[in-house]
Design a protein around this nucleic acid. Structure first.
Lengths: 147, 147
DNA sequence: AGCTAATAGTTGTTTTTGTAACTAACAAGG
DNA sequence: CCTTGTTAGTTACAAAAACAACTATTAGCT
């Protein structure tokens, strides 16, 4: 019986590839703006998708609501985010980036773009396409995701 | 200026794909054997590569030595791992799976194999090849990895 | 209206991780 | 051998994540 080969196991490969490909970028947003990983992710969703509620962010990002709550609080404290109470439902709060938050988002986007190009240059155009498409496919429906 | 697109950013895609593709499998090794993520990883390396020291595991897995230390301690407590002191260098300790640890490894390997096949069935043979090869390439040299 | 259930978001507590500092053992040069 | 430096592995403490319980508000039903 052939031993199971770790280096064919997708969750393992993905986890390691994620860790290693994220490390350098993480150091940048951490050193430059003191952001945590989840904070960066929330900032990014707000930057890309515009005004939305915490629940919306959770749906788009699949980040747990307690992490979003704390990240939003941190971003708010730093004045990267502004809040608007919903008129018709006082539980809800619309969130968007402040001008300052927008600047941070754009600065980091720029860096991310360069960083991404650097990562992708290892691959042919066709490999890039397959890789990105495959990852996207893996997203929406990870495994059996049911819970 | 076009906004940066998160869904083309490899570290983001990889992180989410890793999280989502790992979740179901994680629940299995957790529920069935009470293993933590890092413990599972260490168990797997020992199962696949045979007797080795903690440092060796660190080199093969890129897991930090403190996490390995704690995981090995946990696996040892559960009698999944046995230790042999090195004769010529008393700092070193050879680790390998016990018969029981081996059984756990094989059981989980089986599940992993099925689980992996399930994940991969989304993809054509060619996509599978490109995906796995790309991830492997991303490994050894994640970004600039230098530290 | 009044009761129950659901939703938005927060807070408290426990686990896990990250970082640094530490002990023990070995190595190499004088 | 003795000092200095290096390596293997552990431990202590601080930061972050996971999980559960909570408050406030709205929705739906009778």
């Amino acid at each position: 019986m052939p031993a199971f080969d770790l280096t064919e196991f997708l969750p393992y490969l993905l986890t390691r590839a994620a860790e290693e490909s994220s490390a350098d970028f993480a150091r940048i947003y951490k050193d430059r703006y003191g952001l945590l990983r989840t904070e960066w992710r929330v900032l990014f969703h707000l930057g890309q998708l515009g005004e939305m509620t915490a629940t919306d962010i959770g749906q788009a990002s699949k980040i747990h609501k307690t992490k979003i709550s704390r990240s939003v609080a941190a971003l708010y404290r730093r004045r990267y985010v502004v809040k608007t109470q919903s008129a018709k439902d006082r539980r809800r709060e619309f969130l968007k980036l402040s001008a300052q938050g927008q600047r941070v988002f754009l600065d980091l986007s720029d860096i991310a773009k360069t960083y991404n190009a650097h990562l992708l240059q290892e691959f042919s155009a066709q490999e890039q396409r397959v890789l990105i498409e495959s990852l996207r496919k893996l997203l929406g429906q990870g495994g059996a995701q049911g819970r």
